[in-house]
């Protein structure tokens, strides 16, 4: 299985490659990708540098162009495809059907991967992408149980990639408008969920409050650890009950699924976190590299090492991890 790591900037990319990533994925410095954050991503010169570094080490570069093209800006998405191909990227990660169509027609020889943002969760949807755009890979949304992934893997005409570690999107990706409902900006059209410019922190008599576009997302007591107010991970009220109505601050961690994923033929495990620091990339890449190597060397003896779990736990939201939807009980 390929270890596919995130890079939001050149230092993170170097770190990923140096610590054992088989491939790295990046985005352009604009709204054509789903991590459109200030100070993040790659522009012209850096793109070339990124491609050169990755290829010098015989690894692969995937470029995420995975938001949905605006009607008055389709040329921007097409240019992103052109630029990615021009620097010699190995794969384009695309969600928009129009952009996929363009890439398939203009650059049939460049691999096209269906982005997680395209919400492809079943065999007929996979066939749709296979038949129409001859895609080489489908990235599955984080909504399937491990049994469902297994069933898909058995029947799919296209190799599968799954999310292995990182922030946990609990909604079917590409089909979540919660952020735009609250702020006007969605991952689909602006490339960010719960954008930082709408976040406000305030110390009050009742505790530290986090708000997103003025809506109270959470309120923390002094002993509680405050987290970024991603709107699906706040505490809300349902009929007088105050709790994490959608999800707790937690990260996805699937180390223990490595044997199953590998046996079912999943071709790539993806680490989330282009918005995270090179230090995060280093630790996650190192840990996952060790785990994958251990499995490969002696599959029958594979055991999770506690140091791996500790390292990943420390990097996680709320310092806790979950198997998410892979584990039926989570659902």
């Amino acid at each position: 299985m390929e270890l596919l790591c995130p890079a939001g900037n050149f230092p993170a990319l170097k770190t990923a490659i140096n610590n054992g990533a088989d491939a790295v994925y990046i985005g352009m410095k604009d709204d054509t990708n789903a991590r459109h954050f200030a100070g993040l991503n790659f522009n012209d010169g850096k793109l070339v540098k990124a491609a050169d570094y990755v290829h010098l080490h015989n690894k692969k570069l995937h470029v995420a162009i995975n938001t949905f093209a605006h009607p008055d800006g389709e040329t921007r998405w097409r240019k992103a495809v052109d630029d990615a191909v021009a620097i010699g990227c190995d794969a384009l990660i695309i969600a928009d059907l129009g952009v996929l169509d363009y890439a398939a027609n203009q650059y049939p020889e460049i691999e096209r991967h269906v982005s997680v943002q395209a919400s492809t969760t079943n065999i007929e949807a996979i066939k749709f992408f296979h038949n129409n755009f001859d895609v080489s890979r489908v990235v599955l949304p984080r909504v399937l149980s491990i049994q469902q992934v297994k069933q898909l893997a058995k029947n799919t005409p296209v190799p599968l990639e799954v999310f292995a570690f990182g922030s946990l999107c609990i909604m079917s990706e590409g089909r979540c408008y919660l952020s735009s409902y609250m702020t006007g900006e969605s991952p689909n059209t602006a490339g960010a969920c719960s954008p930082a410019k709408y976040v406000r922190w305030q110390e009050t008599d009742k505790g530290l409050e986090s708000r997103l576009n003025d809506v109270l997302i959470d309120r923390y007591q002094p002993e509680e650890k405050a987290g970024y107010p991603t709107l699906c991970k706040g505490r809300f009220e349902v009929d007088d009950n105050i709790y994490h109505a959608l999800e707790e601050p937690t990260s996805l961690n699937t180390l223990e699924l490595i044997p199953q994923l590998s046996q079912m033929g999943v071709v790539s495990v993806k680490i989330e976190g282009r918005q995270r620091s090179p230090a995060y990339v280093e630790q996650v890449t190192t840990t996952w590299r060790s785990a994958l190597d251990c499995y490969q060397q002696k599959p029958e003896n594979f055991q999770i090492e506690s140091k791996w779990m500790d390292a990943l736990g420390n990097l996680s939201e709320g310092e806790q991890t979950t198997l998410g939807a892979y584990h039926r009980k989570w659902q």
């Binding site: 409902y181 349902v238 009929d239 009950n241 959608l246 999800e247 009980k329 989570w330």
Partner: peptide, 21 residues
């Protein structure tokens, strides 16, 4: 009411502390 998001998780079951299954 606008349909805004879809998840593997059932939030109504969660609100009643029941597993989806």
């Amino acid at each position: 009411y606008l349909p805004l998001a879809y998840s593997a998780r059932c939030f109504t079951a969660r609100s009643e502390d029941k597993p989806k299954d």
